[in-house]
Design a protein around this nucleic acid. Structure first.
Lengths: 253, 253
DNA sequence: GCTGTTATGCGTAGACCATACGCAGAACTA
DNA sequence: TAGTTCTGCGTATGGTCTACGCATAACAGC
């Protein structure tokens, strides 16, 4: 029940203060040899090169020519580093939608932009998410997504839900795609062979009497053929946008 | 280029053979004191009680009164144990849709069933997925989902894509909900206070000029009010089903 | 310029973790 | 009964994160 004199509103965790650049350096003491952005950049470099599993405090420190424990002067725990990595890993949002775009074109662009980021930074998918977006870049993405829906008659809460739906879809699709890529690397087979091999394995395991619908899918050759992943992505995205469109029409009526 | 004499089709990894009960015990040697299902059950018990992070090989062994290394006679690596945990953690699928259900009611039931499982076994969300579903229970869920779409005119590949869309959504929604729950436990605040606190924090961080759309969402009180999570779930699910419905109508025409 | 304060770099060490390896002994076959 | 094979599990290795404490560098005030 200590009467803490905190008139500054809700407490902001140090990790988030770091991300927003709100931490001012105390004037005393030796000059820091490192900085939070330097450390985060090094960690991102490691993740880009060798995946998220390679990001250990010692590895990042080695990347910087510093000692492991030196990092803890800048970052209170590894989780904090991960959070900052996500922020810089996503990078700046694609910007507000061009004026000639309607909401659908805008959100399509928005979704593809995230898709693109996740495609060549798949380690972002492996960082355990610990809460709603709060870092600057992430809120930037959110802002740009909301702007796409500015002209619609959706309620504010519905806009948020719609965006949540889309990001969730993009992340999910990216997760599946990157799993196939990682699986092919692990098994040492060509990326185009992963799904066919999967299909053959399922075919061997299931009893057609117990799994008739699944059997039908297999005999239709759905898993055997090697689809363009971009088509798959477009398909799901269009379904979701169709669903949102139906709601927008209803609200506009 | 070794001429491996393997006429049994694709190689099935040991983990999957375990899951399908295809591993026959050799007749020699001492009788095993443990079994794969016993170990998996113990691991699930630990995860239910203390979360996935508590599932270490030594902890599971302790649960069974066995030595750590004893487990490795039944499971080749921890990843294999995790895979088997997911299979039994999901449990049996909800079964084929009742005859009076159309595709939409069937899939709604299907989605809620998964939602229910993930709600009280949120550790399932933290198990890193390593590939497409291949274990018996998971294929059972897939089968039941496909059956809901039996009577529609969708192509087999479209049925799969539709189900993927729905599971992805369910998992995503469950992830967000469980994050809020974990966040409230970690921060020691009431679950209903998490989103309002988040909203206040965002409000403090963002500049309304730089984030106008987001600012509008905040002033609309979207994050402040404490929604029923089930309503949120229903909203997204209905959007996705609307999107699938649009496609079904197009295919039926 | 000197002194006190404060922050930095980082070495050490502790508490975990997964798992490779090898050995004693049990249960079967011949 | 001898040989084979598999089980249980002790030991050890190399990895993880991070709490703690010490020497030192840089500033503030006198």
């Amino acid at each position: 029940m200590a009467a803490k004199t905190d008139d500054s509103g809700p407490v902001i965790p140090p990790a988030i203060e770091s991300a927003w650049g709100l931490r001012e350096r105390p004037p005393k003491g030796p000059r820091p040899g490192l900085s939070v952005p330097t450390i985060v950049d090094a960690a991102v470099r490691v993740a880009d090169a060798d995946g998220l599993a390679a990001v250990s405090m010692s590895r990042v420190a080695k990347e910087l020519g510093a000692a492991t424990m030196a990092l803890y002067r800048y970052v209170s725990a590894k989780d904090e580093l991960l959070m900052l990595m996500v922020d810089t890993g996503y990078g700046p949002s694609p910007g507000p939608p061009p004026p000639e775009h309607d909401w659908r074109a805008g959100l399509t662009r928005w979704a593809w932009a995230e898709h693109e980021v996740l495609r060549h930074r798949s380690w972002l998918l492996h960082v355990p998410i610990t809460g709603p977006p709060i870092t600057p870049q992430q809120l930037g993405w959110l802002e740009d997504g909301l702007r796409c829906l500015d002209a619609t008659a959706l309620a504010e809460g519905e806009k948020m839900s719609a965006l949540l739906l889309i990001t969730g879809y993009v992340r999910n699709e990216a997760t599946l795609t990157s799993q196939i890529a990682e699986g092919s690397r692990a098994a040492g087979i060509a990326p185009g062979e992963v799904m066919p091999a999967y299909g053959r394995m399922v075919a061997r395991l299931i009893d057609p009497a117990r799994f008739p619908a699944l059997h039908r899918v297999l005999t239709a050759g759905v898993l055997t053929q090697d689809d363009d992943p971009d088509d798959e992505f477009t398909f799901g995205l269009d379904r979701i946008l169709d669903g949102i469109e139906a709601l927008i029409h209803r609200r506009a009526a």
